[in-house]
Simulated assay, not measured.
Amino acid sequence: MSDTSSADANGIDGLRDRDSAGRARNARPRDGLGRPLPYGADGVARQPEGVVRAPQDTVVEAQALLDAGKPFHAHEVFEDAWKSGPDEERALWRGLAQLAVGLTHAARGNATGGARLLRRGAGGVEEWAALTGRERPYGMELAGIAVWARALGDDVERDSGRVDARARAPRLRGTP
């Protein structure tokens, strides 16, 4: 049986969904925190993958998604920048993607994973800033973002509970 059969598009027979080039793509709908929903359910529109954006546009789009309580989707925007941006910025975007995934895990109730990824992302953006001497790339306040991430990681670990992703979203460029 081929990976491109019509049954595969619906996830039947346990095969992965594939795009026209044969790459694995999960066509299942997802909720606002990126959790898969049953086929046919109404989900949140997915972020398109592989979009090349200007760095300023990445920050604006990711912030809008964070403000909407969709950190999983913000992670996908950061991941696009990580994969398509210049080599010298990959660690920055990877760290920001880890922060968004950490918030996603915390909002889903995974305290251990959330705290771990929030701290890893904080360390990543701090390390990148120290290596490059850039504390405010594209207007982002990396020191403030790292403080936010560590504080949220501590809260999540201490309370072992689910957080409201919208209420606890970071301000990438400081206070509004």
Score class of each variant (00 low, 15 high):
S5N: 09
S5F: 04
S6A: 12
N10P: 00
G11F: 09
G11Y: 08
G11R: 07
I12V: 12
D13E: 11
D17R: 08
R18A: 09
D19V: 03
A21Y: 05
G22M: 09
G22D: 08
A27G: 11
A27V: 10
A27K: 10
A27C: 04
R28K: 14
R28C: 05
P29V: 02
D31K: 04
G32S: 12
G32R: 13
L33Y: 00
G40N: 10
V44H: 01
V44P: 00
A45G: 08
Q47G: 00
E49R: 15
G50L: 03
G50D: 06
G50C: 05
R53Q: 12
Q56Y: 02
Q56P: 04
V60C: 01
E61Y: 04
A62H: 07
A62K: 07
A64V: 06
A64W: 02
L66T: 03
A68S: 13
A68W: 05
G69C: 04
K70R: 15
P71C: 00
H73V: 01
H73G: 03
A74R: 04
H75E: 15
V77P: 12
A81R: 07
A81T: 09
W82R: 13
S84L: 14
P86V: 13
P86W: 06
E88R: 14
G95A: 15
L96C: 11
A100W: 08
V101C: 00
V101M: 01
G102F: 03
A106P: 01
R108K: 13
G109Q: 00
T112K: 11
G113N: 06
G114W: 01
A115H: 02
R116M: 12
R119E: 15
R120M: 09
G139A: 11
G139H: 09
G144P: 04
G144T: 07
I145G: 04
I145T: 10
I145N: 04
A146L: 07
V147E: 14
V147H: 11
A149Y: 04
R150N: 14
R150A: 05
L152F: 04
L152Y: 02
L152A: 03
D154H: 09
D155F: 12
D155K: 15
V156S: 03
S160G: 08
G161S: 09
V163A: 04
V163F: 01
D164R: 00
D164Q: 01
A165W: 00
R166G: 08
A167E: 12
L172Q: 08
G174F: 06
